[in-house]
Design a protein around this nucleic acid. Structure first.
Lengths: 154, 154
DNA sequence: GATCTAATCTGCAACGGTTGCAGATTAGGG
DNA sequence: CCCTAATCTGCAACCGTTGCAGATTAGATC
């Protein structure tokens, strides 16, 4: 997602207005790696700007998504999550706590895909499942290192 | 998903009863590659067994999912889809028509994942985005071949 | 900075998918 | 064949999200 100042320009360039509500959401989303739900953003925003409407949060998030400034994540169990990180990346979701974490995968292009059946694949979204570091330590398991393959873990 | 006869055993083994409604759903799901929604299954089931309740379809699908006989897919835009294919596989979803297609990827283990930050990855779910064969031909594009990499397509 | 209009905000109602509930029915072990 | 727990059905409730309408406001124009 662009920085707040640039978003302001981008909104005006599209004929959209930049309201205090939107500016607040811009800053709340900027560099936000928590993959917030609408409710979570609404809760935070409400503290800083009491009276802001849930409807407005939805509206602004939809606008940002339509402009390609946010990724929309449909994780299991109800509500949509939003990801302002638009760099090519993927996610690791903890089986226990549900936490979503950004990860980076370099060699996706090399995957051999069978049964495409004429499908022209242009993008890939990967969600890894397993246990996050915090939930592992709660279960007294050994720690892992970074930059490993799935295979290493078996 | 197991075959209907085996599901019958598995249900009874768990103290669950095998009703005509459930048997019907077992057969409707068996080898079903359409990734049906609850509504779609309900529509088909209703033709064969008028009066079957939508609630029963939900119930049975939830049971099957809890038993690990179905994968639950949260694709964008509303309703959940169910996939009785429990072999390790992934999906290709068409940007235009939304169609979901099973694909197989062999070398996931070799992916280099950065920023795992202690996350212990045990599974990966990949959804490829792009255009399905049907939607490509509607846009007069050239055809693709099978068994290719993302890279080949660029 | 005053004016004007389209975009926006808020609150509420509506909507679609899903689940809880309760009373009637039924699978299936004894 | 009986009995009881599991299931079925229909309906109401629930939750996340969107449509609507009237009041408000950003920001272009003068």
């Amino acid at each position: 997602m662009l920085a707040p100042a640039e978003l302001t320009r981008a909104f005006r360039a599209r004929g959209l207005k930049v309201t205090p509500q939107r500016q607040l959401l811009f800053t709340l989303l900027h560099d936000n790696e928590t993959h917030p739900t609408v409710e979570a953003l609404f809760a935070t925003a409400s503290k800083l700007m009491p009276g802001i409407s849930l409807r407005t949060v939805y509206q602004t998030l939809n606008d940002l998504a339509a402009m390609g400034e946010l990724q929309v994540l449909q994780s299991a169990g109800g509500s949509t999550r939003f990801d302002p990180n638009m760099a090519e990346h993927h996610h690791a979701q903890c089986d226990r706590c549900g936490e979503l974490h950004d990860v980076y995968v370099d060699d996706i292009d090399r995957l051999q895909v069978r049964n495409l059946d004429g499908f022209q694949a242009e993008r890939a979204r990967i969600v890894f499942g397993g246990l996050c570091a915090a939930c592992q330590s709660k279960s007294n398991k050994k720690k892992t290192t970074e930059n490993t393959t799935l295979k290493d873990r078996r």
